[in-house]
């Protein structure tokens, strides 16, 4: 089994892990605090731009395929069950449990906005998975609690091993006549027992061996140092500062109440209130994409930042 992360040759992958994580976190936070459709739409465009820039378009398509049906479900459920809202688009027969079918424009719009927010979050998760190396991410936090972080790193490392073990054990037990996925659910559980037992026993034995190897390399002998091979370049400072400005402008928009939007009882006027803050937000958050484009166009930029 392979990890999802693999380094690609573009600007995003040449950033320090902390810079990328901070950038993705900012987008995530903004997508949570904004309810305004224009802001959510803008965040969606920024996220899409970042995914394309980082060369993960194909990977993202898989995520979209999975999330779009969920989004449609959200819109449907919200518009069927929430009957508030003044603009009635459709009024239908009385249904059991639901009552009279009454679909309003407001409920539809609200469902749409929430669906969009979900797509942004899933896309950010996709961006994180493909652009942040798990070890490096964990190491960012090891200054706070090295033990917990270490457990997480070890689990990430063990997971693919476990999957491999599982596949192998299934094959072996099949040749011993164990019928997998056959019969009633109770048979299935019974048949899974040998596989789970072997998996558990082997994992326990392996953890013991791993612990021995760790002990033999001095783990737990006192305070640890942290080795981080990532270096920070000028580009990291540029992106970090611009992301801070972006985040600040986003928070200003939020505290001024411009980021929220009232869907019920009647859709309010969606026009923007402060073009200056909005432009700052957009420019700062698409800066990585702009720099990636500039980097490709003028190779000299590579050595400068």
């Amino acid at each position: 089994m392979k990890y999802l992360y693999s380094e690609k040759n573009n600007f995003i992958y040449k950033l320090n892990t902390s810079t990328v994580v901070f950038f993705i976190f900012t987008l995530f936070l903004l997508s949570l605090i904004f309810t305004h459709p224009i802001y959510l739409g803008t965040l969606f465009i920024i996220t899409t731009l970042m995914i394309i820039t980082s060369g993960n378009w194909l990977e993202w398509k898989g995520y979209l395929r999975l999330s779009i049906p969920i989004v449609i479900m959200i819109i449907l459920v919200n518009s069927i069950f929430v009957k508030t809202g003044s603009n009635v688009i459709y009024q239908g027969p009385t249904l059991p449990f639901i009552g009279r079918l009454r679909i309003t424009l407001e409920a539809l719009a609200y469902g749409g906005a929430m669906g969009l927010r979900l797509i942004i979050i899933i896309s950010l998760f996709c961006l994180y998975t493909y652009t942040v190396q798990p070890d490096k991410f964990m190491k960012l936090f090891s200054r706070f609690s090295s033990k917990i972080i270490f457990i997480v790193i070890l689990s990430i490392r063990l997971f693919p091993l476990l999957i491999e073990d599982y596949k192998r054990i299934i094959e072996v037990q099949k040749t011993r006549g164990v019928k997998i996925n056959k019969g009633k659910w109770i048979d299935k559980i019974k048949n899974a027992l040998p596989i789970i037992s072997v998996l558990l026993l082997s994992s326990l034995e392996r953890s013991f061996e791993q612990a021995e190897s760790m002990y033999a390399r001095g783990y737990g002998s006192g305070k640890r140092s942290i080795y981080q091979k990532d270096i920070k370049r000028r580009r990291d400072y540029i992106i970090t500062i611009s992301t801070i400005i972006g985040l600040a402008s986003g928070l200003c928009i939020f505290t001024a109440g411009q980021g929220s939007y009232s869907y019920y009882p009647k859709l309010s006027n969606p026009s923007l209130l402060d073009y200056r803050l909005y432009s700052i937000l957009v420019i700062t958050m698409i800066l990585p994409a702009i720099l990636n484009w500039g980097w490709k166009k003028w190779p000299i930029l590579k050595s400068k930042i």
Binding site: Y3, Q133, P134, D135, I153, L154, I156, R157, L161, R206, E209, Q210, E212, S213, M214
Partner: peptide
């Protein structure tokens, strides 16, 4: 397999 603990 069982003496390596990190990812890379």
């Amino acid at each position: 397999e069982s003496q390596l603990v990190m990812t890379d």
